[in-house]
């Protein structure tokens, strides 16, 4: 990796770190972060493929309630850097991708610790804001807000810079020295890990009422001709039909002495 590439990687890492907390532009999502790192290091296609693979795993990662998900920002940035380092002559792209994902997931656990650290450091920062507010000092409040955001960027930028310093030879030789059962096993594990993210989504939304829609989605997805857009269209239609019918049923139950026949009720009103 050249000097300019390293600087650009660190900038991308900084953006990803900021977004890891802001959650607005989505620079921390694997699809975006891995692609950007791939582009600035001259491996765009591999970066995009890695981003897509990791995105599939990270789809349901969101911190809601007690469940704390792995840190998507650090996982994306770390896996992309490891993959780029590992892409040497004689390394299979698919192996580099699956092993870098497997290596990045434990790293993203370390990312959680850094997140907690930043959120604690932010406490004195808002106290400085209080002091600025006391004096009616707009600049002071703004300054501390911007510094707090930068702190979150640095949270990912520093680990990224450290990973960039690891010599590429070391990564390549490590990947090549890996026995087949380890590299293959990590790929097998990567195929299963997506289930965890999906389970997090299910736990958030599942009620007895919506489980049948899960089954429908699962069974219809067996039809290979249906693209995701087609499946999305079916899902939206089902949801609208269901909610619409439920509305009608409720109105029918409420008026006309609960005859359960909305059409009959309308006719009776005439």
């Amino acid at each position: 990796m050249g000097g300019i590439s390293i600087v650009l990687v660190i900038i991308v890492a900084f953006l990803a770190g900021m977004e890891g907390i802001l959650d607005e532009f989505q620079f921390h999502q694997p699809l975006v972060a891995c692609t950007l790192i791939g582009i600035v290091t001259g491996h765009p296609t591999e970066g995009i493929i890695l981003g897509g693979s990791l995105q599939m795993i990270a789809l349901g990662w969101a911190n809601v309630g007690a469940a704390v998900a792995p840190d998507a920002a650090l996982a994306s940035v770390a896996s992309a850097i490891i993959m780029v380092k590992g892409l040497g002559p004689g390394t299979d792209v698919q192996t580099a991708i699956s092993t870098s994902i497997a290596l990045a997931v434990p790293l993203s656990v370390a990312g959680l610790f850094l997140t907690m650290l930043c959120r604690t450091i932010a406490i004195p920062m808002v106290h400085f804001m209080d002091a600025a507010a006391e004096k009616g000092n707009f600049r002071g409040v703004e300054l501390w807000q911007i510094l707090a955001i930068c702190l979150q960027g640095v949270r990912i930028a520093i680990p990224a810079a450290m990973l960039c310093m690891v010599p590429a030879d070391a990564v390549t030789s490590m990947l090549q020295a890996m026995p087949e059962w380890l590299a293959g096993g990590m790929a097998v594990g990567g195929g299963m890990v997506a289930a965890v993210g999906y389970a997090m989504v299910i736990n958030m939304m599942a009620t007895a009422e919506v489980w049948p829609f899960f089954v429908l989605g699962f069974v219809l997805a067996c039809i290979g001709d249906l693209t995701l857009i087609a499946l999305g269209a079916i899902g939206v239609s089902l949801a609208l039909i269901y909610v619409g019918l439920k509305e009608v049923a409720k109105q029918g139950g409420g008026s006309g002495g609960g005859s359960g026949d909305p059409l009959g009720d309308i006719l009776n009103d005439y």
Partner: peptide, 26 residues
């Protein structure tokens, strides 16, 4: 309430298809 309900129906439907397509065990 309605928006949340539509979202959770659509979400469950799509997650069902994603499980079929992208969780791979062999």
């Amino acid at each position: 309430g309605k928006v949340t309900e539509i979202a959770s129906i659509l979400g469950m439907f799509i997650i069902g298809s994603l499980v079929q397509r992208w969780v791979s065990i062999s």
